[in-house]
Simulated assay, not measured.
Amino acid sequence: MDDSRPSSASGFAAVADALRALTFRDDFIVREIAAPASLAPDAVAFAGDVRPSADGGDSEYGTGRFVLLHDATEPDQWGGAWRIVCFAQAPLEPEIGTDPLLADVAWSWLVDALQSRRAEFHSASGTATKTLSKGFGSLGVEGDGAQIELRASWTPSGDLAAHVGAWAELVCMLAGLPPGSEGIAVFGAQRSSRD
């Protein structure tokens, strides 16, 4: 660590420890994963799965990643010392995947989740991608499939735990679990071996 960043390492460590201590709804399991080393001097990353399978792979209902980056030099494109990068993905029914507003809705769910937690942010950017697939040959038995994927980044301010909570809500929303639906059955999850 560079000693020219007074207390930044200890400050980041305290924030990372606080995020590690967060709890989530029972049907959303979060674990720490290796953070990318090339994006910032300090980083911590988490993976979250909606009702994960026993084998520990990505959930057939929805999955996501959350990365908190810290750079005391405050890169111009960030507009601050902190940056969040997140990913959320969930399978859909094929007829939902054809909705022309689906990508807009996915982005609005992220913004709504941030705003409902008073998680202040700026310099947001991202993409929402919907994918339709059809199996052929031996994969034909799997039928048609669809998937929504959101990748986003933003510069947070205030309580960073609120930003993690918003990401968790987004992953659950994409998986069909709106706030207050803990313990409710999830129907129609499709995930092919092609994913």
Results as ranks from 00 to 15, higher is better:
residue 123 S to E: 12
residue 102 L to D: 04
residue 163 H to W: 02
residue 93 E to Y: 08
residue 79 G to Y: 04
residue 87 F to N: 03
residue 51 R to C: 07
residue 193 S to F: 07
residue 71 D to P: 05
residue 1 M to Q: 13
residue 73 T to E: 14
residue 169 E to D: 15
residue 155 T to H: 05
residue 46 F to K: 03
residue 179 P to V: 05
residue 134 K to E: 15
residue 109 W to A: 03
residue 161 A to E: 00
residue 4 S to Y: 09
residue 157 S to G: 06
residue 26 D to T: 06
residue 169 E to G: 03
residue 126 G to H: 05
residue 33 I to A: 13
residue 49 D to K: 07
residue 124 A to R: 03
residue 92 L to T: 04
residue 29 I to W: 03
residue 48 G to F: 03
residue 193 S to P: 07
residue 21 A to S: 11
residue 151 R to P: 01
residue 174 L to W: 13
residue 8 S to Q: 10
residue 178 P to C: 08
residue 20 R to D: 09
residue 151 R to W: 04
residue 42 D to C: 10
residue 22 L to Q: 13
residue 21 A to W: 02
residue 116 S to A: 09
residue 157 S to C: 01
residue 151 R to S: 08
residue 103 A to T: 13
residue 102 L to R: 11
residue 172 C to D: 01
residue 174 L to K: 13
residue 94 P to T: 04
residue 57 G to H: 10
residue 148 I to F: 01
residue 74 E to L: 06
residue 141 V to Y: 10
residue 149 E to Y: 05
residue 145 G to R: 01
residue 129 T to Y: 05
residue 90 A to T: 06
residue 15 V to I: 15
residue 177 L to Y: 06
residue 81 A to H: 07
residue 57 G to T: 09
residue 167 W to N: 01
residue 158 G to Y: 01
residue 177 L to I: 12
residue 73 T to I: 04
residue 134 K to L: 14
residue 123 S to A: 15
residue 169 E to A: 11
residue 81 A to L: 05
residue 107 W to Q: 11
residue 111 V to Y: 05
residue 183 G to E: 09
residue 19 L to V: 02
residue 86 C to S: 08
residue 116 S to D: 12
residue 57 G to W: 07
residue 27 D to P: 03
residue 161 A to Q: 00
residue 42 D to I: 05
residue 48 G to A: 05
residue 66 F to T: 04
residue 123 S to D: 14
residue 163 H to R: 02
residue 84 I to K: 00
residue 105 V to T: 15
residue 161 A to R: 00
residue 7 S to L: 14
residue 109 W to R: 12
residue 33 I to V: 15
residue 58 D to N: 12
residue 182 E to N: 12
residue 12 F to G: 07
residue 6 P to T: 11
residue 182 E to R: 10
residue 55 D to M: 09
residue 53 S to V: 04
residue 61 Y to K: 14
residue 147 Q to G: 06
residue 23 T to S: 14
residue 89 Q to E: 15
residue 96 I to K: 11
residue 31 R to N: 13
residue 31 R to V: 15
residue 95 E to S: 11
residue 43 A to K: 05
residue 171 V to H: 05
residue 119 A to T: 01
residue 41 P to A: 08
residue 159 D to L: 00
residue 95 E to C: 02
residue 88 A to D: 09
residue 42 D to E: 14
residue 195 D to M: 11
residue 95 E to P: 00
residue 57 G to V: 04
residue 27 D to A: 02
residue 67 V to N: 02
residue 25 R to L: 01
residue 159 D to F: 00
residue 125 S to G: 13
residue 42 D to G: 06
residue 88 A to K: 07
residue 128 A to Y: 04
residue 126 G to Y: 04
residue 170 L to V: 06
residue 1 M to I: 09
residue 183 G to H: 10
residue 135 G to Y: 07
residue 119 A to R: 00
residue 47 A to Q: 15
residue 116 S to Y: 01
residue 112 D to E: 12
residue 176 G to K: 09
residue 48 G to H: 03
residue 129 T to K: 13
